[in-house]
Design a protein around this nucleic acid. Structure first.
Lengths: 270, 270
DNA sequence: GTTTATGGTCCATTATATGGACCACTCCTC
DNA sequence: GAGGAGTGGTCCATATAATGGACCATAAAC
């Protein structure tokens, strides 16, 4: 009995065997989720997923019938459906920061004026769950709810990466190297390594406009009761608003909110 | 070949064709969601879904790889995964009562002492999304988050049913008759009809212990901006605490919270 | 009236999921 | 400690169910 349990690397195509339509379905589901604001169009989903059109439509149809997706009668666009919402609310019992975390983001964005984010770690990536805009008029829209980036890319993501043990940092960077090379020209494996070191020294993560020039971010990790980083709280603003002086003001606020969440996670053990 | 389709899912049997594994996957997903508190065991999922064991395991495996489910290394039980949570948070932008609604439930349960529920309509069924317990020491555990009942079964569910136009009431009762006969001995199509009439007259729904003797409930519907009932807010308590006198106190409070939600739904059009 | 987008559908082909039978392990009981 | 009964997990020959190239429909643009 050899059966090597492949702890799959970044691109998760090596199926355990015998269920490709489910993989395709989940892929499409997440794709639609990412585009949910305005809805996802069939053609776009076809190209972004690489599936044949009839296949994509068949799968989408099944998801609509199952209630995980809705299709707008008029525009024919796909949106997340009621069942997805129900599922998420049930899952929130286990992952459940939700309501409380968003309160914290609102506090942060109101007192700082900038935009606050809650992200959740998902294997070797990070997914932006919520974006709460502050009153300051110049707002970066680089990070949106639903966006998914490799660990280390962006402030919150870097905070989580740096909070992992060394071997996992290694593994994450190695697994994502190809994607980073292709999609994040300002980044590199070496840069991530030194960014992790610096983040650990500083006690917070800084993204000096590496995703989009001029759009800076700071972030801290939120650890579960076992000490593993699962969420990140971060703030984004233009470079001028994140100089060293102001960062010294903001970081304690971020850390305070992160601690609140950590306490909530301890209290709600499922 | 006569494939005997287990009627488990209630209404979703007329597949458009060519995607049965997705239907199975979603079925299992919801099944796990319902049992998420303690996790779902393979054997139970096999019997409740009617699938063959290898099939169930293959599908569950695919869902785990996709991140929609987690499997506990030690107990081997299945739980909802991070990806389900992410999906739900993204869907919350469209269905988004979430945080705010739970505030309302907390207010209700604290001031009344009883247990408050938020349920969402899902086609011809209702799904309990959240249960907020009040301080009163005798608590009914008849309705749990994740539970799914036909429209009309239970107070919140009846409130939603009664808020639908007549033809849809007809359709819902007709579609659910078989399930009701089988699983809800205290109910019948005729009883539902008169319950709807009474609910409309009274302005609220009453469940006088029909699901479980002694466990009463009252509920009101929450309508979306188009006037269609989508959510229900309800309270559960023992019979003594829901007599006519106390109901006259409680109903206005329920209605006030329902209105708040309706306003929130109007403000967040998406 | 053609062009070029879109969404949607058909159906012969075969790659795909299927499930009966079986194994491995653990915890009982006697 | 042999048998039993409960788990979770796996094989693999079979035929079922998903596949996708080609095609149709509709709407707007030119």
């Amino acid at each position: 009995m050899k059966r090597v349990r492949s702890i799959k690397t970044g691109t998760a195509e090596t199926s355990g065997g015998g269920t490709q339509s489910i993989e395709r379905a989940v892929g499409l589901l997440l794709e639609v989720g990412r585009a949910d604001q305005h809805g996802a169009r069939l053609t776009d989903l076809v190209t972004s997923s690489g599936l044949a059109k009839p296949t994509a439509r068949r799968v989408l149809g099944a998801l609509v019938r199952a209630g995980l997706l809705d299709q707008d009668e008029a525009s024919r666009r796909y949106h997340l459906g009621a069942e997805s919402y129900v599922l998420g609310m049930l899952a929130a019992r286990r992952f459940g920061i939700h309501a409380r975390a968003i309160d914290g983001l609102t506090r942060l964005s109101q007192t700082t004026g900038d935009t606050a984010f809650l992200s959740v770690r998902r294997d070797l990536h990070i997914v932006c769950l919520h974006r709460e805009e502050g009153p300051f008029p110049i707002r970066s829209h680089v990070l949106q709810a639903g966006d998914r980036h490799p660990l280390g890319i962006g402030a919150g993501s870097l905070a989580v990466l740096a909070a992992l043990p060394d071997d996992e940092v290694e593994r994450a960077i190695a697994a994502n190297t190809a994607i980073i090379l292709e999609k994040y020209p300002a980044y590199s494996a070496g840069l991530l390594q030194s960014a992790v070191t610096r983040t650990r020294k500083d006690g917070y993560a800084l993204n000096p406009g590496l995703l989009m020039k001029g759009s800076w971010g700071i972030g801290v990790a939120v650890r579960d009761p076992q000490g593993r980083p699962v969420y990140a709280i971060s703030l984004a603003a233009i470079e001028d608003r994140l100089d060293e002086v102001r960062r010294r003001e903001l970081i304690p606020m971020l850390k305070r909110e992160a601690e609140k969440l950590e306490h909530l996670l301890r209290d709600a053990p499922a």
